[in-house]
């Protein structure tokens, strides 16, 4: 069981390193991209140690490739375990997607078909990862641009079955729900009502862009009204949960992200005191 943490946080990005190292940023936790710090040493590891001394840290990965048909990369798990042991993070998360197959790594979060075969495979990989890391993980719902048919279940049914079989928790990315719902024509409210609420431990809020034919999960925009509306819908249905603003491109001054985080606090209404 993953202990809930009802706080509000931001992702640690290079333009804001100095702010976080000065220790004066009003956040309850910081999320970092695990792979950026899975290096032998040098400045990146020192920055992470310094930030960790000031804030709880969540490790968010992009390279585990939990949906690879040929299994997980043992060397990757060993590196991640070393980082987990040093940082003692709030959460360790990655995505319901795949990146690697037979020695090729796309470095992108590629979509899975929601079939029974894929569910068996994903659950086996999550079991292996959780054994290697010595803890339960959070798995994030992806944004996707291809919807494979035929499927045996919806994405939210897949997530529910995955949580039940592996004991993992969910990182619910509300923007990803909106992007995929728009691209594939499903009801985002049905999705948010359908995920196992008791398994959600973290929420991502982000923005997206409109491509020629599809919405693209670019994380280069403020959180739009459509995503705030979905957040307001789902947050009363959840228990204590950590919420963060995720911005990866066209990164604005920290004050703008803190303003968005303040809005999340107003809508979410949770405080760290609720954890007690």
């Amino acid at each position: 069981m993953i202990t809930p943490f009802p706080g509000y946080g931001l992702g640690l990005r290079k333009p804001h390193y100095a702010d976080f190292l000065d220790g004066r940023v009003d956040v309850d936790f910081v999320e970092v991209i695990s792979e950026n710090f899975m290096v032998p040493g040098g400045r990146p590891r020192q920055i992470l140690r310094d930030v960790r001394a000031r804030h709880p840290v969540a490790l968010h990965g992009v390279s585990m490739s939990i949906g690879s048909a040929d299994g997980l990369d043992g060397a990757y798990l060993t590196r991640l375990r070393a980082l987990v042991d040093e940082i003692e993070p709030l959460f360790v998360s990655d995505h319901l997607s795949w990146s690697r197959i037979e020695g090729f790594n796309s470095h992108d979060l590629l979509p899975l078909p929601y079939t029974n075969e894929a569910l068996d495979l994903v659950c086996a990989n999550i079991h292996r990862a959780q054994d290697a890391l010595g803890r339960a993980m959070l798995i994030e719902n992806p944004s996707s641009y291809v919807d494979f048919a035929p499927a045996d279940m919806t994405e939210w049914q897949f997530l529910g079955a995955m949580c039940a079989r592996t004991g993992c928790g969910l990182l619910l990315d509300v923007n990803n729900v909106f992007v995929s719902a728009t691209n594939h024509g499903f009801d985002p409210i049905a999705y948010l009502d359908g995920v196992p609420h008791d398994r959600v431990r973290q929420i991502h809020l982000a923005g997206h862009s409109r491509g020629k034919e599809l919405l693209i999960d670019t994380h280069d925009q403020p959180v739009p009204a459509s995503v705030w509306d979905l957040y307001a819908h789902v947050i009363p249905r959840l228990g204590p949960v950590a919420t963060m603003i995720e911005r990866d491109d066209d990164i604005p001054p920290l004050s703008e992200l803190l303003a968005e985080l303040a809005k999340a606090r107003r809508i979410g209404g949770q405080t760290l005191a609720h954890a007690a």
């Binding site: 992108d108 590629l110 996707s144 641009y145 291809v146 919807d147 691209n183 034919e213 599809l214």
Partner: peptide, 21 residues
Amino acid sequence: HLGEAAGPGLRVYQNNYRAAL
């Protein structure tokens, strides 16, 4: 093989792949 309607989405993924590298 990935679906008759997958074209626009596949182009997004291919663009992402190349852009990252």
